[in-house]
């Protein structure tokens, strides 16, 4: 039996009195690409951040490759190293150059030697097409380049899965394409991916499944053609109409 690498069961999350996640059940299969869409404040980021425990779930279980990460005994650092995360604001380390951004966690977490870490870093930079930027500092890169470096940094840890929280939302329109291309290649190579995004084109073409969230629950979950093309719920239709209008 090979269980799905991400399993979320009856997940609840409160911020004080506010219940942001109100019973989430869902799974991601190995190699599957799931796009999470939904209006602002619906809990998409919170769900994603619970999956690598940047947020502490209030109740429920989250199994990563069969291990319960909500268990206080779990080695959260080892688990997190298996889960790559890419943020809306890139969050590169501004005091380190690109190479050191890519090697620091390899050395501190995986215990790799300098040589090995440098080799992996060079290989991952090549994957995102930025080999020539290896000595630059983040501030000297465009937003799109920074986000590609951030993806490479996550890949350096050889993660089994990747989480993306609106990876293109902070980018100028002309820079979105280069980041989506890198993500598409990753998806084609069989990476397990959870992507919170407003890029409906990407969701349509790349995702295996689209999840629509609203008000802290999953309203609709299915193949992109169905959820985006023929939504069953009025809330989904309303959201998609609003997105289509905003894009005009």
């Amino acid at each position: 039996m090979s269980a799905n690498p991400i399993q979320v069961r009856d997940l609840h999350k409160y911020f004080g009195e506010l219940e942001v996640l109100r019973g989430i059940d869902f799974e991601v299969a190995a190699g599957e690409v799931v796009c999470v869409i939904g209006p602002s404040g619906s809990g998409k980021s919170t769900l994603l951040r619970c999956v690598n425990r940047l947020e502490e779930p209030t109740s429920g279980t989250i199994l990563i490759e069969g291990e319960d990460i909500t268990d206080p005994e779990a080695n959260i650092d080892q688990l997190r190293a298996k889960i790559g995360m890419v943020f809306q604001q890139f969050n590169l380390f501004p005091h380190l150059n690109v190479l050191r951004n890519l090697t620091i966690a390899q050395r501190k977490v995986l215990g790799r030697s300098d040589d090995e870490a440098n080799q992996v870093a060079a290989a991952m930079l090549e994957r995102v097409g930025l080999s020539d930027k290896i000595d630059e500092f983040p501030a000297r890169l465009s937003g799109g380049q920074q986000q590609r470096v951030a993806i490479a940094r996550a890949l350096c840890m050889n993660p089994d899965m990747m989480l993306f929280d609106e990876p293109t939302s902070a980018l100028d329109p002309e820079l979105i394409g280069e980041v989506l291309d890198v993500m598409r290649t990753l998806a084609d190579e069989g990476m397990t991916m959870m992507v919170v995004t407003h890029e409906m084109g990407f969701a349509h073409n790349v995702a295996d499944r689209v999840v629509f969230m609203d008000g802290g629950v999953i309203v609709e979950d299915g193949p992109p053609d169905q959820v985006l093309g023929n939504p069953q719920h009025e809330r989904t239709r309303k959201f998609l109409r609003a997105v289509a209008q905003a894009e005009e």
Binding site: N52, L54, D77, Q78, L79, R80, A81, I83, G84, M85, F87, Q89, N91, L92, F93, I104, A105, K108, V109, L110, A150, R153, A154, M157
Partner: peptide, 15 residues
């Protein structure tokens, strides 16, 4: 220092 820095480091598995 922006919060995202600690989050990025932790998400890479750093203690």
């Amino acid at each position: 220092v922006p919060r995202g820095q600690m989050e990025a480091a932790r998400s890479l598995g750093m203690s």
